[in-house]
Design a protein around this nucleic acid. Structure first.
Lengths: 178, 178
DNA sequence: CTTACTGTACCGTCTGGACGGTCTTGTCAA
DNA sequence: TTGACAAGACCGTCCAGACGGTACAGTAAG
């Protein structure tokens, strides 16, 4: 890409996610991120000229990672597996971890709700793709929304479901998805 | 309750929700809420001594309203309707409105993620109740999570689903719920 | 006299961001 | 090979503004 030395950008992005998760989304200040990343505030501002740019970087990073995971999940999955099934599997794995990985999203929303726009667009596009590949729209909607629910629970750190229940749900969804 | 004059408390709560929705969850300051509620800052601090108390009030208000709606929904619904079906209907109605009514939740999370605890507890309890009344656990989980997904979409102001699709989803869920 | 405020002035803290300086690395002419 | 210099990457400090919260004097209703 661009950076020649150690990649500060990624360190900063990771640090921001850590801070949001551990200190709470309201405590995601530039100072906190900089010190967590082992970088001075000046250095942080060099990589991300404004806080908004930092948030944007977080969002883009997130979307890119998800896209990549979806692609490589398609390859790794059983051949003939539908995209919907891959998506279900992948999301279930994501939600396996007890701690939410995307608390920073709340910080972004607080900063400016428009940061959600790319995420909405991504989801919209994904649903579109799924629709074109899935014959049963009803089943698709149910699965898609249920996964959305699972993701939101993970995001909110809601341990309402037990691990067993989560597994049961996923198997039920895969069954519905066909 | 306690208040004798015009109920400032409710006005303030409503104003806080409005500010969060219109100006963004990050702009929920005491000053903004006070001026929106047509109340002086002193008056606001009289009703809610700290910002945290305000958030708590918002959460409690929300939960109380939901509980009430669920109860009156049980009465209003077709006799013999299961609790799960009532919950689905109710949530679908909630999500009919295009604009999210609970943006303040993001402010609360930013303030302190622990404000979610009562909400988590409420949901946990609701699921427990549903489990004891629903024979098919699989179906219950699918429906519960799908509704959760629908709610989260509404919260995030995600118009990924069209109105038709939403209706189709709800009818599918009611079918699954039996 | 108490309750339920209003209105204003004020304080300490925190935060985003601007700014100027510094160290390192790559380039290129002599 | 070397020395000059430009650009890139980062440091550390400072500041204006916003925010939560306090204090207090006043007042209208019951």
């Amino acid at each position: 890409m661009k950076t020649r030395r150690a990649n500060s950008r990624d360190k900063i992005l990771a640090a921001a996610a850590d801070v949001a998760r551990e200190a709470g989304p309201g405590s995601l200040s530039l100072d906190a991120v900089a010190s967590r990343a082992g970088v001075s505030k000046g250095g942080l501002l060099y990589n991300f000229p404004t806080k908004a740019k930092l948030m944007q970087g977080l969002v883009e990073n997130y979307l890119r990672a998800f896209e990549l995971a979806l692609e490589s999940g398609r390859v790794a999955g059983a051949s003939g597996e539908s995209l919907l099934a891959t998506y279900i599997r992948l999301s279930a794995d994501d939600c396996e971890e007890p701690k939410p990985t995307a608390s920073w999203m709340f910080s972004a929303i607080a900063e400016d709700p428009d940061f959600l726009t790319p995420i909405k667009a991504f989801k919209s596009q994904l649903l579109q793709r799924l629709k074109s590949e899935t014959p049963d729209l009803k089943a698709l909607l149910v699965c898609f929304l249920a996964i959305e629910g699972l993701r939101s629970m993970n995001l909110f750190d809601s341990d309402v479901l037990s691990a067993d229940e989560r597994r049961l749900l996923v198997s039920a969804l895969l069954e519905i998805a066909g």
